[in-house]
Amino acid sequence: MSHLLEIDSLSVTFGGLHALKDLDFHVDEGEIVGVIGPNGAGKTTFFNMISGMVTPTSGDIRFEGESLVGFDPNQVTQRGIARTFQNVRLFANMTILENVMVSQHCRTKQGIWGSLLNTSGFRKEEQEIREHAEKVLGFFGSRLVGFRLEQPASVLSYANRRRLEIARAMATSPKLILLDEPVAGMNPKESVELTELIGKLRSEWGFTIVLIEHDMNVVRDVSDRVVCLDHGETLAQGSFEEVSNDPAVIEAYLGRPLEKKA
């Protein structure tokens, strides 16, 4: 059976620097895959490449059997891959509701004429967009709904911004969500809660998830499989236990043990 997302010997170089080297990777439908690795390992570049923001130098990315190389980010999202950003990038001056409504753009189709003539199709679609948005926001409990709907995203706390980013990604109705450090900057209680929610994203909403995370508790709790990257290469792959006990991984994180240094 073919994989949902399949990546073949993907490489990218920035001015002679290998950000990613011959990377092979795959995700099956319904999986949650954790991507770990020290800073500068190429994790975010990896996401940028899947989502079309960076064009690979060589290699291939296939999603549901279709190659994504050369697509614009919007075309990638259209095909069912959504993402969040490591340094939360909301539309800060749009309301929370609008943030989520706008990301349904590629799933809706009413154009100028519909809105000018205020056709029934237009009104129906607006209604659906709004309902879907509220449903998605409701996933995070009462935090992002109610009076918050009409507030600008810029007034949200850091944790809520992260949640809103996830909501925005969910609203694009993707098959695969790429989460870039979803719990960074959250306190332990919040990250435990978000970990549960990530589980629910799969069980209740049916999303396949790839997440980059530094918090190993989160990675352990949600991932079916863990991939460790370093210097743009796959260092280890497998269950969390296997990867976390892999000597190469430990070395990449902690450095070479002292006595082995020649």
């Binding site: 989502s51 079309g52 923001m53 614009d72 980010p73 919007n74 075309q75 999202t77 259209q78 959504a82 993402r83 950003f85 990038r89 909301l90 539309f91 706008v102 990301s103 753009h105 590629c106 799933r107 925005r168 990604a169 694009t172």
Partner: peptide, 9 residues
Amino acid sequence: SVAEAMGIN
């Protein structure tokens, strides 16, 4: 660029 990543052409 975020708008682009959110599926807006």
